[in-house]
Design a protein around this nucleic acid. Sequence first.
RNA 1: GUGGCUGUAGCUCAGUUGGUUAGAGCAUCGGUUUGUGGUACCGAGGGUCGCCGGUUCAAAUCCGGUCUGCCACCCCA
Length: 442
Amino acid sequence: MLWSAMFQTLPGFREFYPEDCAIRNYIFGVWRQAALRFAFQEFDGPLLEPLELITAKSGDEIVSQLFNFEDKGGRAVTLRPELTPTLARLVGAKAGSIKRPVKWFGIAENFRYEKPQKGRLRSHYQLNADILGEASPAADAEVIALLISTLCAFGLGEKEFVLRLSDRDLWLLLLEQHGLTGDIATGALNVIDKMERESPETLLKMMQDKGVPGAEAVLADAQKLVACTSLEAVEAFFADRGSDVASGTRVSARLDQWREVLAHLDAMGLAGFIRVDLGIVRGLAYYTGFVFEAFQTVGKGRALAGGGRYDHLVEKLGGQPMPAVGFGMGDVTLRDLLEDCQLLPDPKPTLDGYVVVGGGETERRAALHDVAALRKQGFAIDHPLKQQGFGKQFKTAGASGARFALIYGEEEVAQGKLKLRDLAKGEEVLVTLEEAATRLGQ
RNA sequence: GUGGCUGUAGCUCAGUUGGUUAGAGCAUCGGUUUGUGGUACCGAGGGUCGCCGGUUCAAAUCCGGUCUGCCACCCCA
């Protein structure tokens, strides 16, 4: 109590007692296994990065949300807020010699200096998976398939989440047809991103504040596009509004890419998860094509993961041009959801045996010898660290969750054997160490 | 960053209009039980009532501040 009164955990940080750590490891394990099955390779980078690496990607405004400081060498550094800049640097540095496509994933602790709230802490873990060096929609589909499959590996299904698929290219084409390009178009996109939450009046005002000409017409079209829930509807929308030949050609080329992604996912049996939803824009300016979000459809609607294509980022961070697509999935929201759906595994440790020892020094030595031998063979064995009565030891053995109690009393040790008690069934057998190992292995 | 709510044992919570030494259940530890567990019974440990200050003869209780957690906004890599 004294210590906890003197030092409390920093705001927005978590501590992992064994039960929590077991859950964390379970989540990491499922993430890793899913990514490896998709033939992604694991990588990692430094927790601490030059501040500039982050601002180069996201702009100077982001500094207010970073855990940044000056190190003893006078360098401006920051705890990493995400893994993508590190990835871009690693891949960019070897862009000329690396085998493509690059399929990499990382499980990283990320930090952000924000006011903590449930589901949004100052430290969280994230699975990141990215494909670099492949511009075709097959790469987008592969990444999306991994995202969906990963969530399914936890036992989640179509009832629990959907994947909302959108496209910044399509939006930019539409805005271009309205004569909007560059910063004005980006500003308009930021407003469109808020269409779900804000009233039409507010949106119009926001558009006008950003200096978007013809804001009313742009918004009217945007509403129609957001209302589309299928690719056919999107096609019809663009066909109805008409356009010049050049623009029309680019729209139809883009729609071909949509068809490819959807066909790919359909062939993998994942079509049921996909929702065409142009309402997803994602605030980040660096996304260049498809953007998507896994959105939970039970309980409180939250985004479980998000990502998209970012074809210019590697080049921007000093490397060579390299198309890229990827996603990030945080552990906090995911764990909350798994808890709500009761999909978390029993956190009890899986012990093979717990030793019960009676008598004196002879029995204790015999037990310790066997403990060491069984552990060496790969079994998880625990034993009492102090002399206790049999009753007490059996109580502990039962509570430990072990499958067997290994009993070393005077009678057993005198015969050079031990008694094996199946703690669930209550059956006991007198066996040698070798026989015990055989039974533990079954 | 802005606004609101919140805080008593490891956990869930009682605690009378301010009034002796702040309680319960669960959990933990010990015992009943130096050769047989989950049940039962007995017992113990564990709190400067989030922290600091103020009012008062007297504060867990009233007032102010502060920190934390939660909710909404902002932001969302």
